[in-house]
Amino acid sequence: MTFEDESTSPSAAPLSTQELCAWLKAELDIDAQSADEIGDGNLNLVYRVRTSDGSVIVKQALPYLRLAGEGWPLTVDRARIEATALSLHNELSPGGVPNLIHFDADQHLIVMEDLRDHVIWRQTLIDGSLPAGMGAQVGEITARITLGTSDVLVPADNRKQLLKDFVNPELCAISEDLVFTSPYIDSPSNNIDDSSRELAERLRRDSELFAESKRLLWAFKTQGEALIHGDLHTGSVMVTDGDARVMDPEFAFYGPIGYDTGNVLAHLAFASTRHDLLGNQEQVKLITEEALTFWEVFVETIAELWPDSEPWQETFLARVLEDSASYAATEMIRRMVGMAQVADIESLELPQRYEAKQRIGRNARWLALGRPVRTVEELWDRAIHD
């Protein structure tokens, strides 16, 4: 399903909880009884609305980056992109994302299924309460969505329409700045404290690493292989026993497949590094199994979907693996010194947080500048090396 482009529509004022309940009743005949803001994300207002027969989640896009405030204007068209992506993702990987109930272009509102029995994948990794099989499920979802929107499977005319539907310049610009540029310069968006100051200073002197980041920025901007999530990591997946759902695809655009897979592996490496420094070796082992299984199932699903008429599957997967290592490196660096850092590391006490950031910075450099990886085991060993 494709929704109408709303990029020129005026920004709607944030709805109060009372206004939201009234809107749901008037527009969708949903018996909304109360609403609470529950969002702790960087972009949107998020509400849980209790109804007479359960609950729904409502997201409203604001005309600015919520994390930074009104001084950072941001398009509300991201709500259309997210709604369109959720609809398409559910077609390609049924049950892999929250069910979309309604999108309203005038209010920039998305109404979706409430996954209230699920928790954020990152939190289960931090707590050591990880449900089994989540890496496998995310690997399958990622493969079905990326290959299912690529030239390998999509007729040329359909793909050109998808490219048009997912032009996403403002949110891409956020990634282009925060991931590939700001960590290597003295940027006001960086988040530097005693645990990261030494690493930040070293990054500003590392011309070789900065050059590699700029090369990857070029690929990020020009290598439109498939519709990627654009912000896929352990904080954008909800999990419970037997079920993983990928959410928040407002950064979706046509880009390099390895950006998504690399980000997932980077965030699993954060969790592994945390538990290694805390002495929880059993958790390190479990996270390693999840990371390797994520890639193995991704590969298996690609093989299942790959047409016999395209005799270059091995070359394709080798390229995605190399890209995954490179983009894992940029994500590891970004989350150590840039905006929007990760609880896996930030919740550590200062001596351990310092050691984590030093280690992750070293490992990221090795991933970015070492010889190309040939196996996912090699990628993972570099990502978590102590």
Rank of each mutant, 00 (worst) to 15 (best):
D186R: 02
T288V: 04
P188R: 13
I185F: 07
L199E: 06
E198T: 15
V246P: 05
E296D: 15
F210Q: 13
Y254R: 04
H229E: 02
H267K: 10
V284P: 00
W218V: 13
T181A: 12
F220N: 05
S195T: 14
A211P: 01
F298G: 01
F251C: 02
I302W: 14
F180N: 08
D194E: 15
L203P: 03
I185R: 12
V284F: 00
W218K: 15
A271C: 03
E300A: 15
W295K: 02
L203Y: 08
R215Y: 12
E282Q: 14
S196Y: 10
G255I: 01
G242Q: 13
L292R: 14
E225A: 07
L209H: 03
K285R: 14
G255T: 01
T288Y: 04
D243Y: 09
P183Y: 10
M238T: 08
F270P: 04
I257A: 13
D231H: 02
Q281E: 13
T273V: 15
H233V: 04
I302F: 14
R274C: 03
A291V: 04
D194I: 06
E296V: 02
N190L: 05
E212K: 15
R197S: 11
E201I: 07
G242S: 12
S195H: 11
H233T: 04
Y259P: 02
V246G: 05
L217S: 07
G230Q: 05
I185H: 12
R197C: 09
S195G: 14
T273Y: 01
T261L: 04
E225R: 13
S207C: 03
G242H: 12
A211C: 06
A271T: 02
F253E: 00
L277T: 09
L268T: 01
L216R: 15
T293R: 13
I287D: 01
S175E: 09
S195I: 05
L178Y: 11
T234F: 07
E290C: 05
K221L: 15
E282L: 11
Y254Q: 02
V264A: 02
R197K: 13
N190A: 11
L227F: 00
K221P: 04
M247N: 06
D186F: 00
G255R: 01
L203F: 12
G258H: 07
